[in-house]
Amino acid sequence: MQMTKIYTKNDIRKAALELKMGELVAFPTETVYGLGADATNEKAVKRVYLAKGRPSDNPLIVTVSSIEMVERFVGEISTDAKKLMENFWPGSLTIILNIIPGSLSETVTGGLKTAAFRMPKNQVTLDLISELDRPLVGPSANSSGKPSPTTAEHVFHDLEGKISGIVDDGPTTVGVESTIIDMSTDIPTILRPGAVTPEDLEEILGKTVISDKHKVKDKETPKAPGMKYKHYAPNAQVLIVKDNDWQEALKFAQENKDEIALLATEDILKNAKIKLKYSLGKDEKSAAKNLFAGLRYFDDMPQVKYILAKEFVYDGLGMAYMNRLKKSAGNQFFNVDLVEN
């Protein structure tokens, strides 16, 4: 088992050297921590799948430090795609584009003729990629299926001994992965919701964006991460609680205090006479930022059987939050009769 080193922003050259040697180094972004490997080194990329335990037909996001770096792999960028890059990069938007045949290995693309590109809003990581002078693959730096990491400590918990290092730049600020938009099709299509909303994209593009294609069939190769397999799941069963069901949910929690945990906003928690709880803050923005940290918090408590989690309206940033929460819960909602049986 190799030793996993912790790097700071002052160790960028050391971290880049590890990547040049084919090692894996986790890196910070504004959304979640990513697991980095040189995207042009197929052996290194294959190690990412092994470290995460990730299905090999799940394509990897290509993380870049400039638009010029994207052009190495796609050639000419369309007018609409360039508009999105100019308005949302660096930031929480991943853009799927057709690529030059053979420019990236099938290990990166999942065998597709497209690839997903992102420029994160984190200067430490942009400096790291610039030092490497090659893009990084950047899936979330966690064991596959588990809640995504929003701190270096989360990464260390899952991947200690499996990767060379972690560049620590503190907690992430957004907390859920980037919006993914497919620009390789005639109609721009959101494949994963995130902090950049459909309305944001439509305002820039001046055209309709499809925003409800978040799943694929069992035998279909997904164009983007998070569309096919179970994601974000802690050890306990997550149950989503609708606003009208919280009174009943709190009663159930208080009757089963040792097995039930609450993941909710401050207004709900202040009335909960139960010690196993984690605050999502006050609104959709803070809830999105705190969701994965909350799910991971209860993973260290083996006695927890159920996590009761707050539902938000499926709109704006609430759409990104609910997309992840539904996946972590397996789309299961709280029902006291079902739980008691």
Rank of each mutant, 00 (worst) to 15 (best):
M1T: 03
T4V: 08
K5F: 11
D11L: 06
I12T: 10
E18V: 11
V32F: 00
Y33C: 10
A39H: 03
E42F: 00
V48S: 04
R54H: 06
L60N: 06
V62I: 11
E68W: 10
V70M: 13
I77A: 07
S78I: 07
A81V: 10
K82S: 09
L97S: 15
L104G: 05
S105E: 01
S105I: 05
V108P: 01
T109F: 05
G110M: 07
L112Y: 09
A116Q: 12
P120C: 10
D127K: 15
D127N: 15
S130K: 04
D133V: 02
P135E: 02
L136E: 06
G138P: 02
P139F: 14
P149S: 04
D158Y: 03
I163L: 04
I187W: 10
P193R: 15
G194K: 08
T208H: 08
T208I: 08
V209E: 08
S211W: 00
K213W: 01
G226R: 03
Y229G: 15
P234D: 11
Q237G: 00
D243Y: 12
Q247S: 13
K257P: 05
K257N: 08
E259I: 09
L263V: 08
E266M: 01
N271L: 11
N271S: 14
K273V: 10
Y278N: 13
K282S: 12
D283R: 02
K289N: 12
N290E: 10
L291M: 08
A293H: 02
G294F: 03
G294L: 02
R296Q: 09
R296I: 07
D299M: 05
D300C: 08
L308E: 05
K310Y: 00
K310S: 07
A320M: 14
L325E: 01
K326N: 14
K327F: 08
A329Y: 01
N335A: 02
N341R: 07
